[in-house]
């Protein structure tokens, strides 16, 4: 297993936000974490990214205890894309923005090593974004920006990609574009992708595995058709749901 979380407990202040969470994800797998606001999804992602230190429990990355991996090494394996709360600086080109994904390799250098240039260009090329390289970040639409954020996260060629609500603020067309791209990258690069998202239907359509969280605990886990049961969803969200199947993919309809 590339990511293995066991009985994880973590919180802010004295109150635990995660109460014994266990999760696992492997190469070539797209795993979604869904659940209501405040259920601990983003905190779980931050723990896996090594930003929050667990109170109790264990996180293993590529078979090694996360506490025994240096920050620098962890950063090479795991790439974490937080929710965008700060708009990107206007006068930064796309090329520079993506290059910052390799800030650890650039640290202390004035000249940019060829290896970093190559990684940026390969990433832009892979995502079909090379034509954007010289454009400024403030010239891009929301959907384009989200693709550039993903490019930045991929520029250091991680094995594990963690994304916190990457589909937020995107229109439906761009939501599909981004999630399809992530699906494709998971297969193509044999990546382990863990996404926190709110849209249960997108999660159902594109995930190999879904973790449903509520109140700091995993309520259900497994393939979408096993997790998305009306009774389980009603217990978590407090409203009734109907499940319909579209090409064998469960789709959730909230009926209040």
């Amino acid at each position: 297993m590339l990511v293995k979380v066991q009985d994880l407990v973590y919180g802010y202040g004295k109150e635990p936000v995660l109460r014994g969470v266990s999760l696992s994800a492997n190469e070539g797998e797209l795993v979604s974490i869904v659940g209501p606001n405040g259920s601990g999804k983003s905190t779980l992602l931050k723990c896996i990214a090594g930003i929050c230190r667990p109170w109790r429990g264990k996180i293993e990355i590529a078979g090694r205890d996360i506490t025994r991996i240096s920050k620098r090494e962890l950063n090479r394996i795991v790439s974490y894309l937080p929710q965008e709360t700060t708009p990107p600086p206007s006068l930064l080109t796309v090329y520079e923005y993506v290059l910052l994904g390799r800030v650890q390799s650039l640290s202390g250098r004035v000249a940019v090593p060829e290896e970093d240039h190559r990684a940026v260009l390969e990433t832009l090329d892979m995502l079909d974004l090379t034509s954007y390289a010289k454009r400024y970040m403030n010239e891009l639409s929301g959907g384009e920006k989200q693709l550039i954020y993903i490019a930045q996260a991929l520029a250091r060629k991680p094995k594990i990609l963690l994304l916190d609500e990457p589909l937020n603020h995107l229109d439906i067309k761009n939501q599909f574009k981004v999630i399809r791209l992530l699906r494709e990258l998971t297969r193509k690069l044999d990546l382990c992708v863990i996404i926190v998202m709110h849209d249960i239907n997108q999660a159902a359509r594109y995930s190999d595995k879904i973790y449903l969280m509520n109140n700091g605990e995993i309520v259900a886990e497994g393939p979408p058709d096993e997790v998305l049961e009306p009774e389980i969803l009603e217990k978590v969200y407090g409203i009734k749901f109907r499940i319909v199947y579209d090409e064998n993919v469960p789709q959730v309809i909230p009926i209040g």
């Binding site: 937080p82 700060t86 930064l92 650890q104």
Partner: peptide
């Protein structure tokens, strides 16, 4: 230099990039 530019992306993003 690079760390300073990264700060312009916000603290959370900087932390996520390893700064």
């Amino acid at each position: 230099s690079w760390e300073l530019v990264t700060l312009r992306l916000g603290d959370e993003k900087a932390r996520a990039l390893g700064v």
